[in-house]
Computed example of a mutant assay.
Amino acid sequence: MGLMFRKRKKYGPLILNFTENGFSSWSVKIGRWSWNSRARAHRVDLPGPLSWKQDKSRSRA
């Protein structure tokens, strides 16, 4: 497995994610809640090392 290039640019609550191939996805983070355009998942940071995630694709089942 080789090295991977990843870069994040933050503009307030908006986060742009880049890889070696260019732009990859964007995210919105407000407080403990965040949403990612690629995973289309909501995530909530919980106390300690825990977090809760809900995938949009799995919630339709």
Score class of each variant (00 low, 15 high):
R8W: 00
F18W: 14
S37G: 14
W33Y: 14
H42E: 11
N21Y: 07
R43P: 01
M4G: 10
D55C: 01
K9P: 00
G12C: 06
A41E: 13
S27L: 02
S34V: 00
H42T: 09
P47D: 13
L16Q: 02
W26M: 14
T19G: 15
K29P: 01
K9G: 01
S59F: 09
W33K: 11
P47A: 09
Q54F: 04
S27Q: 14
K10S: 12
M4H: 09
S59I: 12
A61Y: 09
W35C: 00
L3S: 14
G48D: 10
Q54P: 00
S24A: 10
V44S: 04
S57T: 04
R32S: 08
I30K: 12
F23I: 01
I15Y: 01
V28N: 05
G2N: 12
I30E: 03
R8N: 04
E20L: 11
S51A: 13
R38I: 00
R58D: 15
S34R: 11
D55I: 00
V28C: 06
E20D: 15
M4V: 10
N17Q: 11
R8H: 03
R32E: 01
A41G: 12
S27N: 09
N17W: 06
L46N: 12
L46S: 10
S51M: 02
N36Y: 02
G48N: 11
I15K: 02
L50R: 12
N17S: 11
R8G: 00
M1V: 13
W35I: 08
R6T: 14
S27D: 05
V44N: 03
N21F: 04
G48K: 06
R32I: 01
P13H: 03
M4N: 12
R6C: 08
F23A: 05
W33N: 04
R38Q: 11
V28P: 02
G12Q: 07
S37A: 13
L50Q: 07
I15H: 05
S51H: 14
K10F: 07
L50I: 08
G48M: 05
S37N: 08
L14K: 13
H42S: 15
R40D: 08
A61F: 09
E20P: 06
P49M: 02
L14M: 14
S37R: 08
W52K: 05
L16Y: 04
S24V: 00
N36R: 08
S24I: 00
F18Q: 07
R40Q: 13
R58V: 15
G31W: 05
N17D: 12
G12I: 02
I30H: 04
R8T: 03
I15A: 03
R8S: 01
N36L: 04
I30T: 07
S27I: 04
S57V: 05
I30R: 12
A41I: 08
K9D: 09
R8A: 01
R43M: 13
I30V: 13
L3G: 14
S24W: 01
R32N: 09
G2F: 06
R58Q: 15
R43Y: 07
W52F: 14
K7D: 09
P13E: 01
Q54I: 12
S51R: 05
S24K: 07
P47T: 02
G31C: 09
L16P: 03
R8Y: 02
S25P: 05
Y11R: 08
K10W: 10
R40W: 03
R8E: 04
W26A: 14
